[in-house]
Amino acid sequence: MPVIDRQQPAAEFQIRPAATDDSAEVDRLYDICVRTAAGGDDATEMFDDPRLPGEIFVGPYLRYAPDLAWVLARPGRPASGYVLGVADTVSFERTLDREWWPALRDRYDGETIRQGTADARSWEWITHPRTAPAELASAYPAHLHIDLLPEAQGGGNGSRLIRTLLATLRAQGVRGIHLGVGKANTRAIGFYRHLGFEQLAEEPGSLMLGMRLCD
């Protein structure tokens, strides 16, 4: 997911665990997801149902990997960003196949979704979920998603969020992590490479990056 890490003072932002049992916080993270879903820009107006991106990239992580979910927020204010991860991508994807995706298919009516829309592309993901290649998931079993609103971009906030996640994964003995990023998002690619991620594979329109965490 896209991140821009401009160097601007942002010391007032703090990192804390996501309040996964707080419906208001969950809704806020869904909102951040759609507000950064257009290559880092606000995609709210592109969706008939702006919750759909969050159903794919936020909800399952809060439900099944709450110990790897952190938010960035000013004290007493709603979250302005988050990082979400899972330690075992293969196990996570199997759980979603059993529980998360079937529930979404029952909740949404695919026949009412307009073809060729952002909603339709999300519905395609829900009905035909993408999975990590087996070789990649074996060598780099963890993966992450990170999104920051413009107000939180800068001051190293993105770096601090990711390093918080990486430290926890290392403590758990996870040997590697991967993520996908759009080829056109050169700032995000540079950001990840600065953190130590290396290119692992190339797909149409995107790159797969990874980092070794433990031997």
Rank of each mutant, 00 (worst) to 15 (best):
T95H: 09
E111C: 14
L148E: 02
I113D: 08
R107D: 07
H145T: 07
L84K: 00
H178N: 06
D106R: 04
T112Q: 14
E202W: 02
P141Q: 11
G155V: 15
L179H: 03
A103K: 09
G76I: 05
A118M: 08
L104K: 01
D147T: 02
L169S: 02
D88M: 10
A184P: 01
A139Y: 03
T186R: 11
R114E: 14
A184T: 14
G173S: 01
E151T: 13
P78T: 05
A120F: 09
K183T: 09
E93G: 07
H178M: 07
D109L: 04
A87W: 14
G180I: 11
E202L: 11
I126T: 03
A79R: 05
G176V: 06
T112D: 08
T186Q: 12
A134G: 04
V181Y: 00
A142D: 12
P102F: 08
R77N: 03
G156M: 01
S91R: 15
R121K: 08
Q172C: 02
R98Y: 04
Q199W: 00
Y192F: 08
A152M: 06
E198M: 09
A201H: 05
T186S: 03
R107A: 13
L148D: 02
D119T: 10
Y140K: 04
S80C: 08
G158A: 13
A79P: 05
A120P: 03
S91A: 13
A167C: 03
T131P: 06
E111L: 15
D88C: 10
F197C: 03
I189T: 09
L148H: 04
G180S: 12
G158H: 06
G180P: 00
R163E: 06
P78R: 07
R114V: 12
G196D: 06
V90Q: 15
T131Q: 14
S91H: 14
L179R: 00
D119I: 05
A118L: 09
L161S: 02
R130L: 15
A87S: 05
I126A: 07
L148V: 10
P150R: 05
D119W: 10
A152L: 12
H128R: 12
A118R: 10
A152H: 10
G154N: 13
W123P: 06
Q115W: 08
S138R: 15
